[in-house]
Design a protein around this nucleic acid. Structure first.
Length: 305
DNA sequence: AGCGAGCCCTGCGCGC
DNA sequence: TGCGCGCAGGGCTCGC
């Protein structure tokens, strides 16, 4: 369940089971799911067995569970990719198909349970990674007050729901570039957590075409765009995220309902909710963009020279 | 430096 | 029915 609202649903669902829990056995069913594991720290399973975990933290689409230990700080890092799920299952349940890693959790004073990493396409992964200091001294992400972030997520920007998100830096960098505004929204180094669905939804809400050059946008337009991003993400979060099928579910396997509330994504051929014009889907960066051609007019081509 | 292409994968729905 | 194609919530690396 890939974009920020879906990962946040997972973070909230994991928190009560994971915070303070000890790790029992670790079963690795698919070594490719550890692609991002940092080998020099040691063996993934060995590092985790017996470890105590603290509450989950999220920045953008990255989620991590800090490991309580002496010595350099480490965390169990998860990225769900396109199809990853983290599921909590009672110990009498068989692993469902495509379970790649199964971690036994022993919460204090409560029955033990499995944390299953399920991933169809295997673009997602788990790892043990080092925690490094944040460059601004603020907390690493939502869920922890500690100014630490996994090394593999240190290069990505904060997300728009993070109180320490540097709005002015985002605006400055977008306005300094002539590339299209959707590219900027999807560039996790500028702002994290936004994927194809919420980029299209926010651009529609802000009335901007995906190819509008960043350099042509005013500060006020970019502030409105960030507001639109936050607004659509918060609404999605309130509905449990966007689920098109059983691939995108919370830690209990339940779907979110925000797909009913999408205004442009996947709605090509249907009328725009604002003006009735037929919505379009257009190729973009080996994916698609969905838009209303009237509310989001294509920028006039710049004449060179 | 920025940007497009290719790659990492599995599986579904569609047209032929 | 079967096959090939296009498509899918992401992101890293490599060239130009």
């Amino acid at each position: 369940m890939p974009e920020l609202p879906e990962v946040e649903v997972v973070r909230l669902g994991l928190e009560p089971a994971v915070a303070g829990a000890r790790v029992g056995d670790v079963e690795l069913h698919e070594p490719r799911s550890l692609r991002r594991h940092v080998r020099e720290l040691g063996d993934f399973e060995t590092l985790l067995r017996g470890a105590r975990l603290s509450a989950p933290v999220r920045r953008g689409k990255f989620l991590w569970l800090p490991i309580e230990r002496s010595g350099p700080p480490l965390a169990l890092l998860a990225h769900l990719g396109m199809s990853g799920q983290l599921l909590l299952r009672s110990v009498d349940r068989q692993a469902q198909p495509r379970t790649r890693v199964r971690i036994l959790l022993q919460p204090a004073g409560r029955p033990e349970l499995f944390l299953d990493f399920v991933d169809q396409r295997m673009f997602g992964s788990l790892a043990v990674d080092r925690l490094v200091p944040t460059d601004d001294g603020a907390p690493g992400g939502l869920g922890s007050a500690r100014p630490l972030v996994p090394a593999q997520a240190a290069h990505i920007a904060r997300d728009p729901l993070d109180p320490a998100f540097d709005e002015e830096r985002f605006i400055r960098r977008v306005r300094a570039s002539r590339s299209g505004v959707k590219r900027a929204l999807l560039d996790q180094r500028l702002v994290s957590g936004i994927g194809n669905i919420y980029a299209d939804e926010a651009l529609w809400a802000a009335g901007l075409h995906y190819e509008r050059p960043g350099s042509a946008l005013s500060r006020a337009q970019l502030l409105r765009l960030l507001t639109a991003v936050r607004e659509v993400m918060l609404r999605a979060l309130a509905e449990g995220g966007t689920s098109f099928d059983a691939q995108y579910v919370n830690v209990n396997g339940a779907s979110g309902y925000f797909s009913r509330s999408l205004t442009v994504y996947g709605r090509q051929g249907l009328p725009c909710a604002r003006c009735g014009t037929v919505l379009r889907r257009e190729p973009f960066m080996n994916r698609s963009s969905h838009l209303c051609p009237r509310c989001q007019p294509r920028p006039r081509a710049r004449r060179s020279g």
